[in-house]
């Protein structure tokens, strides 16, 4: 699980990019705290062949990435 709360873009996407490059996981959970990061991580994940499900958690967002 990547906790990218408190980070603004592009850092959350860089964190996801690193995790994908390192292990090419089939599933990955990412926690972010702003809508802009939700959009950016989603776009990046989709371009890498992941399906993305977004769920709001309080004021944060949990993104579930799945190949």
């Amino acid at each position: 699980m990547i906790d990218a709360r408190g980070y603004s873009c592009p850092t959350p996407v860089v964190m996801v990019q690193k995790a994908v490059k390192a292990g090419n996981p089939d599933t990955l959970e990412v926690l972010v705290d702003n809508q802009c990061s939700v959009e950016n991580v989603t776009r990046f994940a989709r371009s890498g062949g992941y399906q993305v499900a977004v769920a709001a958690e309080g004021r944060d967002f949990r993104l579930k990435l799945q190949k």
């Binding site: 873009c9 592009p10 860089v14 990019q17 950016n40 776009r43 371009s47």
Partner: peptide
């Protein structure tokens, strides 16, 4: 999310042209 630096940065970093 308009940003002049973001356009070129994301293109270089993620091939994201938005």
């Amino acid at each position: 999310r308009m940003c002049m630096v973001g356009g070129i940065r994301d293109a270089v970093l993620f091939k994201d042209f938005k």
